[in-house]
Amino acid sequence: MSSQHHLVWNGELTTRLRLIRRGMYLAAPGMLWILLFLALPSVLLIVVSMTTRGDYGQIEWVFSLDNFTRLMGYSSYGWSADYLWILFRSVWVAFWTTLVCVLLAYPLCFHIANRAPEKRYFWLTLIIIPFWTNLVIRAYAWLLVLAPQLPLAKFAAVLGIIPDGSPLYPSAFAVYLGMVATFLPFVAMPLYANVEKLDWALVEAAKDLYAGPARIFWHAIWPQTVPGLSVGITLTFIPAMGMFVVPDLLGGAKYMLVGNLIQQQFGTSRDWPFGAAVSLALMVLTLVGLHIHRTKGGEGGVA
């Protein structure tokens, strides 16, 4: 016998080589699928972002960084902040969407956790249903609510914000409404998992020490909800930056986000190289966001 070659793994007498080979057979199909249809296409995206659009919308294999300088606003007509503004606006919208969703999710979760246990399922289901409802339907539903014949638009007209008989869309306001409605369940669901298990003894202790509501929240409640909150923020901020359906239906040309810009390049403009460059910019923003979140999330966990 020689233990250099044999080992017992979960009760099975085998060799490391045999185990790795079997693990590879099992993992390879799925891994290769992702590699082939996501990792490699992403690399292609990088390559294509450095090519040039042909006259008929085809890819010309002429390499340059023109697409990126164009994204930065430089063109033969001089400098314009349009694209940068779209990028900035996407981050801005994602930030406020996330913040409002977090602010609304806390009372929502507290309220549900405060119901009798057998009733919580019902309340939780009320969050899960919109979560699983198709995004296109939900965005379109807001078009109906903001229609000119309905009270919201009429009220706005009375206030003189919009002319009488016109809808509240397309507008930044409509985009924000749609975004918050879309992502509120994404924050509430993971947050609820933490709120339900909250240790209220800490809150009682804080009360005994005559802490005010703000201090109680900050020192006794918030630290306990960091894990769920962290998941919720990731699930909201990153997809919100790349969101395409909501601004498309509710913002139109008036409030374009980076998702719409990408879609436009792959759709009507038929400018794949520039679309690829914009996609990469969004990917970079995502990675930066994830990185900030991870480092900040680490601090929160310690606190």
Binding site: M1, S3, V8, G11, L13
Partner: peptide, 8 residues
């Protein structure tokens, strides 16, 4: 039990 292998 055979759930580990001795070195020798």
């Amino acid at each position: 039990a055979g759930l580990e292998l001795p070195d020798s």
